[in-house]
Simulated assay, not measured.
Amino acid sequence: MKTDTNSSLDFRKYPSTKALQCFETAARHLSFTNAAQEMHMTQSAISKQVAQLEEVLNIALFYRTPQKISLTPAGKTYYLDVLDILKHIEIATTNLVSHNDNTEVLRIVSHPTFCSRWLIPALSGFDKAYPLINLEVKEQVGPFFSEDQNVDIAFLYGTGIWGGMEAIKLFDEYSVAVCHPDYLKDKETFSSGIANYTLLHLNSRLNAWYEYFEQQEVSVNNTFIGPRFDTFQACISAALLGYGLALVPLRLVERELQSGALVTAWDYAAKGRGSYYMTYPLSLGESHRIKVIINWISAYLET
C-alpha cells in the first residue's frame, strides 16, 4: 500500500458515504467481522469497502494481521474526522425530514442553569401556540456567538453591550447565600467571621463572595477559598447536599427556598454587576421568529 500523500485527490474519487460508514464501524470495533454484523453486510464486503477507501486516499488506515486489525496513526486521525462528518450528516438529515417546508427553526442558546430553571418554564406552551416554529435550545457556558455557530437568540448575563447585537433587558440579578437547613447548626454567628463556613464558588465569578460582603460593609478574610464549580446548578446541588454555602441568583433557587430544601444563611440579597438579557444579531431584527420569541418572553415577564 502506497503512503504517498502528496498527490491530489481527484474530485470524482471522493469517498462514498458507504465506504466511510464501513471504515467508521470497523475502526470502532477494530474488527471487520463485528462491523459486518452491525451493518448487515458480509465481512468481505466490509473489507473491500475499506480497501477501496484506502486506495482512494492512497494511504493505509489499518494494520492487518491474521489475528486482528488496528488503526494506523493516520487511521486514528481520520476516524475522528469521519465520525464528526457522519454525525453532521445524521443531524442534517434528521432536521430535514423532521421539518416541513412551512416551518422555521429558532436556535436558542443559554447558560445551563438559567436555561433549566428559568428559560424552559418561560417557553412552556410555545410549541402549541406556534407549531410552525421548531425550537432548538442549547445549553452553553460560552461563547455564544461565533462564526462556527448558528444561533438566533441568546439569553446572557452582562452589561447589555455586545458588538453587533440587540439586547433586551429581562431583569436585574440579586444573589443570596443559601445552604441546607442543617448546615447552619452549631455554626458561629456571622459577626464572628466565616472560618467555620465553606464557601462554594462559581469559576466565572470568583469575586462574588468578596463583593457580597463588601456591599454589606463587612470585612471578611479568605473569601476566595472553597470548592469551585462551572455552573450555578453545580453550586446549588452542592449546597443541597450540605457541602457549604452557595451564592446564587435568587430567581434560580426560588423553588428550593419555598420548599425548605434550602434556606438563606443571611438576610441579604446582593445586587449583581450585570443583568439578564435576551440578545440577537442586528441582522435578524426583522425576522418573524425573533419577533415571536421576543413577544412571548415579554408576555411571560408581565405575568
Rank of each mutant, 00 (worst) to 15 (best):
S8K: 11
F11S: 10
K13T: 08
T17P: 00
Q21L: 14
Q21S: 08
A26F: 08
F32S: 06
T33V: 13
Q37K: 15
L57I: 11
N58L: 06
L61S: 06
Y63P: 00
T72H: 04
P73W: 04
V82T: 15
L86M: 07
K87M: 11
K87T: 12
H88F: 06
E90S: 14
T94V: 10
L96E: 12
V109W: 02
H111T: 04
T113M: 03
C115E: 13
R117W: 02
P121E: 05
P121K: 05
F126K: 07
A129D: 11
L132V: 01
N134M: 07
V137S: 05
P143W: 01
D148V: 08
N150D: 15
A154K: 04
L156F: 08
G158T: 10
G163W: 01
G163I: 02
A167N: 15
D172A: 12
V176L: 09
P181C: 06
D182S: 15
D186V: 05
D186E: 15
T189L: 12
F190L: 15
S192C: 06
G193Q: 08
A195E: 14
L200R: 05
L200F: 03
N203Q: 13
N203H: 09
N203T: 08
Y210F: 10
E211V: 05
Y212L: 02
E214I: 00
Q215H: 10
S219L: 12
V220K: 14
N222E: 13
I225E: 12
R228E: 09
R228H: 11
A234I: 01
A234H: 11
C235N: 13
C235M: 14
A239Y: 03
G242C: 07
G244N: 05
P249Y: 03
P249Q: 05
L250E: 14
L257E: 03
L257P: 07
A265F: 11
W266P: 00
Y268I: 03
S275Q: 09
T279C: 15
Y280I: 05
P281V: 07
G285W: 00
V292Y: 05
I294E: 14
W296M: 08
Y300P: 01
